[in-house]
Amino acid sequence: MSRARIRLATAAAAAALALGTLPASAYAAAAPGAGVSARPHWHQQQAETIRQITLQGAVNVRDLGGYRTWTGGQVHQGLVYRSDALSKLTDADLTTVSGLGLTKVLDFRIPVEVQYDGADRLPAPLTPTSRPVSDLGLYGTLVGAITSGDPVTQEQMLGGGRAEAYMRDIYRTFVSSPENRAQFAAALREIADGAQGPLLYHCTSGKDRTGWMSYVLLRALAVPDDAAARDYLASNTFRAAYDARVRAGLKQSGRMQNPDLLIPLQEVRQDYLDSATARMEADYGSFYGYLTEGLGLDLRTLAKLQNKMVR
């Protein structure tokens, strides 16, 4: 193997470790409920119940239904799912995913993530639809930090609050970038389409781009802000064991002396969500302004979204 190919393989492995894309065999040891048959699990989050779809090759797969709206309705189950990357699904996982009846899968990952992590593995005849949302160079930053193997460089890149600041910047671009807004708007239009069957969307870890998309969708369905925020923050619960395993692996391999530098990048935080909503209010005045002006959704589309998704 040439030196260039060796460097590429090393970078891919490092990025996969940091972003939560270990081989399926590693997922089997890290995923909640590993070693038992895949089936929905219910997790109580204060007043709301979150329905997790337990898989071996992904750890943050959930049905977005079940939430109560402030208008007295309830979001339908079985119509929209959110998840982390699906490139490492096992054969048993494919059977479980097939049972969800999905008709479309939207992939928010950028091309370099798909190149390194692999395309989605889906039951036939499903193929993923690419809806790339910028990570503001996060993937490349992680590759550079981890593959350097230098504790000083890693501290300089990620320590001293720099990782947290990076995440806040990423969340602001979910709102400020016209390209990102276009992808989120397209996803919402597809969900609102009455002819569209059950749909799943995801990014790499299923927490940031997917988290923002889910927060916006729930708010658009009149789910109270605190419940939508709890759904966003629940990624920390579902990813905790796996992310801890990733950090332990990096330390054991010698790639990082202080893998806790990655925690701000692995977690979701209210502060990150607040960065996006603050930018939303600064640019558009309100959540409604963001939906109509920022995302370009008309009243007919918003009504279709409600009619389809809320009972």
Rank of each mutant, 00 (worst) to 15 (best):
V59T: 09
F238T: 09
G161H: 02
A234P: 07
Y201N: 00
A185E: 09
P224S: 14
A15E: 13
T153S: 07
T292D: 09
D274I: 08
F174P: 00
G289F: 15
E48Q: 13
Y272I: 03
L22N: 08
W42H: 09
D225A: 15
L297C: 09
A185F: 12
R82M: 04
T204G: 08
D107T: 00
A9R: 09
M1F: 13
V112Y: 05
C203A: 00
K207N: 08
V175R: 06
A220P: 00
L122H: 03
F238P: 05
D120E: 06
V152S: 12
Q266H: 10
V59W: 00
Q45K: 09
P32K: 04
G140W: 00
G254P: 15
Y139C: 08
L142Q: 10
L94W: 02
S177C: 12
D169R: 10
R68S: 15
T277S: 06
W42T: 04
D283A: 09
A18R: 10
L221F: 12
A227S: 12
I6R: 11
L265G: 08
E179W: 01
T173L: 14
T237N: 10
E281N: 13
M1A: 01
D93W: 09
Y116G: 04
A13Y: 08
P259I: 13
R255T: 15
D231I: 07
T292W: 15
L273Q: 04
A47V: 15
A303R: 12
G33P: 08
V105E: 00
G65A: 05
D298Y: 14
P264F: 04
L199G: 01
L142I: 07
S98P: 00
R300Q: 14
R269E: 08
F238Y: 15
E155N: 06
A4I: 00
L199D: 01
A11P: 11
T95W: 11
T10M: 14
I110G: 02
D226C: 14
D117E: 07
S275L: 03
G160A: 05
D271S: 07
P123T: 04
A192V: 05
L86K: 03
Y67K: 11
R62L: 01
R68N: 13
Q196R: 12
L217C: 10
L79M: 06
A192L: 05
A85N: 06
E267R: 12
E179F: 02
E267D: 11
S87K: 04
L89F: 03
A182R: 11
M213A: 10
I263T: 11
T10V: 13
T127D: 06
W212F: 14
G99P: 00
R109L: 02
I50F: 15
T54Q: 15
S177W: 13
N258V: 15
T147S: 14
V152I: 12
L291F: 10
T96A: 08
G159E: 06
E48V: 15
R39M: 13
W42S: 06
A29N: 08
Y290P: 09
S253Q: 15
V133P: 00
G35L: 04
V97E: 05
A29G: 07
A29F: 07
L297V: 03
S2N: 02
D84K: 05
Y139I: 06
L297W: 01
G197H: 03
L126I: 02
Y27F: 15
D120G: 00
E113P: 03
D271C: 04
